[in-house]
Amino acid sequence: MRLTRPSARERAARAQLAGQASAEAASAAAHAEPLAPGTDLTAAAFFDVDNTVLAGASIYHFVRGLASRKFFTTGDLVRFAVRQVRFRFAGEDSGDIRDSREEALSFVAGRTVAEIVRLGEEIYDEEMADRLYAGSIELIKRHLDAGQRVWLVTATPVELAQIIARRLGLSGALGTVAEAVDGVYTGRLVGEMLHGPAKASAVRALAAAEGLDLRRCTAYSDSINDVPMLSVVGTAVAVNPDGALRDAARKHGWQIRDFRTARKAARIGVPSVLGAGAITGAVFGGLAVRRRLR
């Protein structure tokens, strides 16, 4: 059976649902702690994570940590990554690929949120803490020193994104929300992955909930896919931009900052080419298949 390509209206609805769910999770987490005295209530900064704050794809590093814990083999990762790349080039109606939206986080089905958070804490220390871009951390610090709140915005699962945000002392994170019932993941997404237009929806929804003036807000990203998010704020900054975003930044007069070295750029090349959506769909969908075959 061949898949039917979702309509533009359906894609927009999914993006809005994903953004709203992510904003609700971020707002709830932010309100768990009182605001510091002198906090600027109307200005904030939004940072993409992969290749903007962190070298490489955060989900890729998370998967490496899972692999070291025998969740799956390297062979599984390679096979499913190849399958997802083929899917991305063949289109959404490729006959041998199920709807990647539904399988993207299915590997967590039946696992508890607490378990994934615990593993995420461990894997952050092992795989991610030493991969942060010093230049981006300095930009974050400037916003914090100015009394502004800072949120991460990423396609990475929101629980992992929140761990990174906590470790960096940020207000919180907007990330992909996986459905959970009584603290146990169902394996389904709420809407879709937080990617492209869904990020812009999440930022707008969070701004409405928190009383932010988007004209006073700043957004940072490395990817052309984040132009929707960069376009909804008053100040947009291209950080370690891909070629298409560099061109767009020049066209729009956006700032460009590059903190990469040749060595780092080479090291993150494969995760960057695959993209967060490809890696997420490939790995998480593949794990679901592997678990069914056991």
Rank of each mutant, 00 (worst) to 15 (best):
6 P>Q: 01
7 S>D: 10
17 L>H: 09
31 H>S: 14
49 V>H: 09
50 D>R: 03
52 T>K: 00
56 G>W: 03
57 A>L: 04
58 S>N: 08
59 I>N: 10
59 I>Q: 12
60 Y>K: 02
65 G>C: 03
70 K>L: 09
74 T>R: 10
76 D>V: 08
76 D>S: 05
82 V>G: 01
86 R>P: 04
94 S>W: 00
95 G>D: 12
98 R>Y: 06
101 R>D: 12
102 E>L: 14
104 A>P: 02
105 L>G: 11
108 V>F: 11
110 G>M: 03
114 A>K: 01
115 E>G: 08
119 L>E: 00
120 G>L: 00
121 E>Q: 01
127 E>M: 01
130 D>T: 12
138 E>W: 07
154 T>M: 00
154 T>W: 01
161 A>I: 00
162 Q>F: 00
167 R>N: 01
177 V>G: 13
178 A>P: 01
182 D>H: 09
189 L>H: 03
196 G>R: 06
203 V>L: 05
216 R>Y: 05
224 I>N: 14
224 I>A: 14
232 V>L: 07
234 G>E: 04
236 A>P: 02
237 V>I: 10
243 G>Y: 07
244 A>P: 03
245 L>W: 05
258 D>Q: 13
262 A>L: 13
272 S>M: 12
282 A>C: 01
290 R>W: 07
293 L>V: 07
294 R>P: 14
